[in-house]
């Protein structure tokens, strides 16, 4: 067992004994299930309307009617929920002085950060897997294209990964868990708004840069089923950059 695995195992264990995971998990699964339900009902009503107008069974596009809306709504849910999962990672260690143990043990700061990030990422991916029940159930009674659904899940995983990295950074910045949660929520909203700003500026250079920096257009493409390397590169580099900043923050605290 390397120190990384030891810390990862401990972090996972702490998640499972704390109520936060269960509350966040329940809310996430309930909301995602509820939204999926709404979307399916909505699609059913549209089918009925089409039946009345055209008197034929129209081939409904479930990808568009259900999944795309589901992925867009879940994006918002994650903005609120993921900061709550990450808020305790560093803030609690600093508050309870357990960070002194980690920093005086033979484990590097990069290992600490990657173990903590990995733990929360695994938890999140576990939750995502549970929501896969929706497409599986739908595929039993309807037909749709799997490819955009899969890229949609890739989008959710990458998007969540980015949010979690922001959460890790925010948690490293403060001793107060509530402050950490709001800080990461704030960071996510700012990155999101930059995208809106970029869209307003249109095709100018600054507009393009702003749009690139924000996750909106990358998420959009993935949800539409376009798996493009440049979007994946965006997310991965965003995550690495944010975690690197967290590394600097943790390191600089020691120098005060």
């Amino acid at each position: 067992m390397t120190p990384f695995h030891t810390l990862l195992a401990k972090e996972l264990r702490c998640f499972f004994v704390s109520p936060v995971l269960y509350v966040v998990g329940t809310v996430f699964l309930f909301v995602s299930g509820f939204i999926a339900h709404l979307m399916v009902v909505n699609a059913g009503q549209q089918a009925l309307r089409l039946l009345q107008i055209q008197n034929t069974y129209a081939q409904l596009n479930l990808n568009e009617l259900v999944f795309r809306s589901l992925f867009y709504s879940l994006d918002f849910v994650l903005m609120f929920l993921l900061p709550i999962l990450t808020m305790r990672l560093f803030a609690e260690e600093r508050k309870l002085r357990t960070f002194e143990l980690l920093l005086t043990s033979p484990i590097g700061i990069n290992e600490i950060i990657s173990a903590k990030y990995m733990s929360v990422l695994l938890i999140y991916c576990g939750l995502l897997c549970l929501t896969a029940l929706t497409p599986v159930l739908l595929s039993l009674s309807g037909s749709f294209h799997w490819a955009p659904v899969v890229t949609g899940y890739v989008a959710l995983a990458l998007q969540g990964g980015l949010f979690l990295a922001c959460g890790v950074l925010a948690s490293a910045l403060t001793e107060n868990q509530v402050v950490a949660a709001f800080l990461s929520f704030g960071m996510i909203v700012v990155i999101w708004l930059i995208g809106g700003f970029g869209a307003l500026l249109g095709d100018s250079t600054i507009g393009t840069i702003f749009s690139y920096v924000s996750f909106t257009e990358h998420y959009d493409r993935l949800v539409r089923g376009l798996l493009d390397a440049k979007d994946v590169v965006y997310y991965v580099s965003g995550i690495v950059l944010t975690l690197f900043t967290a590394h600097r923050v943790v390191d600089s605290h020691r120098w005060h």
Binding site: K10, S18, L96, R97, T98, E100, T104
Partner: peptide, 9 residues
């Protein structure tokens, strides 16, 4: 350390 570094849970 001055404050024992303990994980309460």
């Amino acid at each position: 350390p001055e404050t024992p570094p303990l994980y309460q849970e």
